[in-house]
Design a protein around this nucleic acid. Structure first.
Length: 207
DNA sequence: CTTCAGATCACCT
DNA sequence: GGTGATCTGAAGA
């Protein structure tokens, strides 16, 4: 078990450990949740793909400089992207949550998205809309209501696959760095790659 | 199957 | 004025 407010794990390790954890949105007694199946690590001031590259710090992204466990939500075009800060205050590193496998509140998520099945949550902008995440969750703690991650309700991936991050062209070695983590064979990934597994890529639950 | 405009805004040049 | 850690629907090959 790991704690998202600790900094004893690197950002890459947090990105890997988050796979299988339950992301929960709870508002007005309405719950939607899903197990995380895809993440990306953004490893700070040396990472050309990160918003915090070269120490960039604007009002919009000051949450990245907050302590581990702080939620950083980035708005791009018409979509919100959900990140969790991973390091000490002043060290701007974070993990982007890119896809979830829906667990509870599935009909509500499909209704919000006007899409069924995997199309509801298989991408960073899709899952924030499906779960009703808003800028009200920005700069709050990932351990508290109304948006939190339960690291105990964890599924264990059968196999974790590392690939380059999505949408990072022309960033030198950072374009090819293997900083995207996926549950191999899971049907809810943002890019379909190979065959799906009948167990969705999870090990059998131990009792 | 692939490509592309458009949504829409903080930040950069 | 141009650019994006995105997504969609429509049009073309």
């Amino acid at each position: 078990m790991f704690n998202l407010t600790n900094t004893n794990l690197s950002t890459e390790e947090v990105a890997e450990q988050l796979l299988g954890c339950l992301l929960v949105k709870e508002e007005d007694g309405i719950i939607t949740s899903g197990h995380i199946v895809e993440t990306e690590a953004y490893v700070g001031v040396t990472d050309q793909a990160s918003h915090s590259y070269n120490g960039r710090n604007t009002p919009r992204m000051k949450a990245m400089y907050a302590p581990a466990g702080t939620i950083y939500i980035y708005k791009m075009h018409t979509h919100l992207l959900l990140n969790v800060v991973t390091r000490e205050e002043g060290d701007p590193q974070a993990v982007l949550i890119r896809a979830i496998e829906p667990y509870s509140g599935v009909p509500l998520m499909e209704a919000r998205r006007k899409k069924q099945g995997a199309a509801a949550t298989s991408g960073p902008g899709k899952l924030t809309k499906a779960m009703g995440i808003s800028m009200d969750d920005h700069e709050t703690s990932i351990l508290e209501l109304s948006l939190y991650i339960d690291t105990k309700e964890k599924k264990i991936p059968h196999e974790i696959e590392r690939t380059k991050r999505i949408g990072i062209p022309n960033k030198g070695e950072w374009t090819d760095a293997l900083l995207r983590y996926t549950v191999k064979g899971n049907p809810y990934l943002s890019r379909k790659n190979g065959k799906f597994r009948v167990d969705n890529g999870w090990n059998a639950m131990l009792d």
